[in-house]
Design a protein around this nucleic acid. Sequence first.
DNA 1: ATATTCACG
DNA 2: ACGTACGTGAATATG
Length: 968
Amino acid sequence: MSKKLFLLDALALIYRAYYALIRNPRITSKGMNTNAQFGFTNTLFDLINKEKPTHLAVCFDTHAPTERHTDFTDYKANRQEAPEDLLASIPDIQRIIRAFNIPVVEMDGYEADDVIGTVAWQAADKGYEVYMVTPDKDYGQLLIHPHVYIYKPPSFGNPEEILTAEKVCARWDIQRVQQVVDMLGMMGDAVDNIPGIPGVGEKTAAKLLKEYDTLENVLEHADQIKGALGEKIRNNKELAIMSKKLATIITNVPVEFHEEDYRLKEWNKEALTEIFTELEFKTLGKRVLGENFNAFHSPQQATQTDLFGNAVAAPAAGKSSGKKTTKKDSSAVPLPDWTAVDATETAAEESGATTETVGLVANKNITNTPHDYELVETDEQIKALVKKLQQQKEICFDTETTGTDPNNVELVGMSFSYKAGEGYYIPCPADQKRTQQLLELVKPLFNEPSITWIGQNIKYDLLVFKWYGIEPKGQLFDTMLAHYLIEPEGRRNMDLLSAQYLGYEPVHIDELIGKKGKNQGTMRDVEIEKVKEYAAEDADITFQLKQVFVPLMKEKEVTSVFETVENPLVRVLTDMEFEGVKIDVEFLKSYSRDLEKDAKKCEESVYDQAGVRFNLASPKQLGEVLFEKLKLDPKAKKTKTGQYATGEDVLLKLANQHRIVDDILSFRELTKLKSTYVDALPEMINPKTGRVHTSYAQAVAVTGRLSSNNPNLQNIPIRTERGREIRKAFIPREEGRLLMSADYSQIELRIVAAISGDPNMCEAFRLGKDIHTATAAKVYGIAESEVTKEQRYKAKSVNFGIIYGQGAFGLADNLGISRTEAKQIIDNYKKEFPNIQRYMDEQINLAKENGYVQTLAGRKRWLKDINSSNFTVRGYAERNAINSPIQGTAADMIKMAMIKVHHEMKQGKWQSKMILQVHDELVFDAVADEVDKLEELIIRCMTTAMPLPNDVPVEAEVGKGVNWLEAH
DNA sequence: ATATTCACG
DNA sequence: ACGTACGTGAATATG
């Protein structure tokens, strides 16, 4: 067998591991971040397992300055100070490497790539296959030697990749790998602060090398190169030469490759056990050291602390009562006993084969929840529990059900917790009569007005209960919403929150009902004892999370928006979802047939014109037909996977070249309407109500908006003739009712005017002007009466662009005008509305200073990339700094209006119902004789819910009709 | 499971 | 030279 040597670029791999896990950091129970340790060890172990190297070494950079630094003081000066967690991880990683008995190679005055390059070539000369393990592309230059390769370890979804000289040449579009340094010499490298030639990037560098082969030759023939490019090259010859030198990896470092030192040896299992225990690598520990490894049989695990270092209720050890304190035995994997198919999968997952993949699961090395959970079954037991719970001020509750659609499930059980570590579970049998009886017993509890009910995504449980006729009277507290305000971009599933904030690993739902997909069971089929453990634990954890989130919200100053907006909205959404909207199925069925017929026509026409039959729904195949067979505009852009892009914007630009384009676009429109709306909506009708009940996600959109799903009723077509038709299918639930729709008018622009305080824009709104016409008049310096349609259209586009932080390029592309004209318009705009520009700058500065921006109601969005050195990444964060407060304030406002409307309608016992929200629109299913009063109520609530500063008026318009289209 | 496209505000 | 306007959800193709 051939000798395989792997050389690891330690620091590069550590950086990569650290950042790969940054959004889901692994934190030990002591609060230490172990991303880098975990990621590096994982990579190392997988590599040994999978690639079976015979020889291996890890290379580090040293602190000593290298020749590159002395030659060029700016070298790597760009590099930000590494995060503290990351630096702290290095000694651990070196210990781990030592415990694996793997040599560390480093050399003062040289960087890891120099050492790796030198050793790689020596080893390859001795007949080794050498793999340099690094994500860094600069190593390409070393592939001159056959038998030397780059090994890119697997990263988030992508498998590992072995780069050969051919692949590197293809990647850079060069002929020989030697040219990698010539490339870098010209295009520079922002990461290492290698300057290169200003204005020359990857594409230009490749073009030059194709013609001149080397950088030196390019410089020699610089006179022949025309235009600005030639000028730049001539002016920067020395910079280019130096850049090439900086990029060149040194391959004569004074190290020698002694084969024996590099051979893989026995691991020091004792040392590994110690380190893994310390770092709390439970599953990884088992993978490396076998099932005997158990990091948590060490004695120091006696106390549990929460985030603030407070002790959390310890397990009731030594109790001699009938209650037991159970602890999951992690060596005996609990398998669902009802399926053999899933057993293998579960086993594989528990062994770590899938669970501990970098970036997927954050922190598994934590303890189970210490607990003492009680099953409450008989009427007497339930009555006793109710009595006990009635004494409490706050109680967490959770429901277990037969499915995920709260409007179409049966209750399987409910759990309660009012004290950390304790929990109660009441099972509800399939016999719905008996379940109703049980619920009558607990009803007094929910009627207690003084109890605060805590839940994670409590809207779900409220809906389930509402179907059984129970509506808790007291206050609510949704931990999911608390976390949404603390960390809007975070993920919020229970397992993750529990691990992150409490350090507990709860029972996974998969362990009870199987993974979704193949024959997933329901809670009903699981042994009651197991459900009890799971359900009570959820209530217990949620109860504890509330105690952590309250101070956290206070610290982050989001308590007010929680109390005045998000938390009160829960009941509003519950009621809206409960009501649902009626759909005219016959209308849709007939419309579906029309669409089908017309789509078919378009499809046939496309095949005729193309001369081939293919799958028109496949962008890939369509791209090939358009650009290869029909040879349309060869400059068509490619998608990131290398396919031809065939999006609407691309196709529209081809429209004048070939008639086929119209048919393709029509086909797209028709099939989209048919599959997404016309055919899908009737399928979503709830058999119990005959209506469609969307679900509003209250903790998904980072700006504070709601989102709608199952089905999404916030994107029902309106912009095209044929799409709009679908709105006719949304009808009142019965005779004698109408649909009513109320829209905010230009709400986001009003918010921009109000919070920027721009005098011209505020004035326009105060005078009730058409804002786009007023804008056009200012921008073009003419009277409003002289503004043409064209000018108004352009001004409208600028107004919207401003909200999103659009630049001249985007505006030009949008309006199909030149960039010069676009720039002219934007410059005028900024001059006429000076405070708008100031607002944008201010938001960016605020984000840079505070790390966040906020809405009028105090909702925050943290922008971690606002100081990034990466132009694109930072630009994205800057646009978010501008847009989020605007979009978010509009979201705050309509949410507050909804709460107000809901409150008044409930007080006034209205028969009409609020049923839908579409960002700036509310839809009502209204009783005919309430319509006039309702109109007044809606407009008043919407316009006064959240007054804007600078006297900018808020306006809303109402429409009504026999369907949603007419209501507009 | 990911990418592409397209529906809405 | 890069990419270029924010926020969503769903259907379809494809690896």
